[in-house]
């Protein structure tokens, strides 16, 4: 019984982790604010999603038309394209707790 119950759990965990995380970071120019956000995101991903994430940085100064697609209002914004559902986090990502909740990595308290 024990092994049986452990096995699926063990199988489930690697399956979830192996899922690729696609993250888009919308920034505006290479301002310090944007730099901070990118640094925070990278650090977060290294901690929680090591090896299974991909970050795309979109500079709206260069590609303003892309803002419409993901309904971007605030800068910076992180959009989790994968896994579904799409999640949006706005801000410079300095608040790790909220980021974890926002990305469904921890249930909201």
């Amino acid at each position: 019984m024990k092994t049986k119950t452990v096995k699926p759990r063990a199988a489930a965990k690697p399956h979830r982790i192996t899922k690729l995380w696609q993250l888009r970071l919308y920034v505006m120019d290479t301002t310090p604010k944007s730099q901070t956000a990118l640094a925070n995101l990278k650090q977060f991903c290294e901690t929680h999603l090591k090896g299974i994430y991909r970050i795309t940085v979109i500079d709206l100064l260069k590609q303003p038309q892309l803002a419409k697609g993901d309904q971007i209002l605030a800068i910076p914004t992180v959009v989790r394209q994968l896994p579904k559902p799409v999640r949006t986090i706005i801000g410079n990502l300095s608040d790790i707790e909220h980021l974890l909740v926002g990305l469904d990595l921890r249930p909201a308290v």
């Binding site: 919308y26 505006m28 604010k33 956000a37 925070n40 709206l60 100064l61 303003p64 038309q65 803002a67 419409k68 309904q71 971007i72 209002l73 605030a74 800068i75 910076p76 914004t77 799409v86 999640r87 949006t88 986090i89 706005i90 801000g91 410079n92 990502l93 300095s94 608040d95 790790i96 909220h98 980021l99 909740v101 926002g102 990305l103």
Partner: peptide
Amino acid sequence: VHIERSEVQESGEYDLEGLFVRLGH
């Protein structure tokens, strides 16, 4: 422009430059 509060999580400071960009564009 659509933004659903339940789908958005705040984390740290931000501004509405995105809105400006869209409008400007």
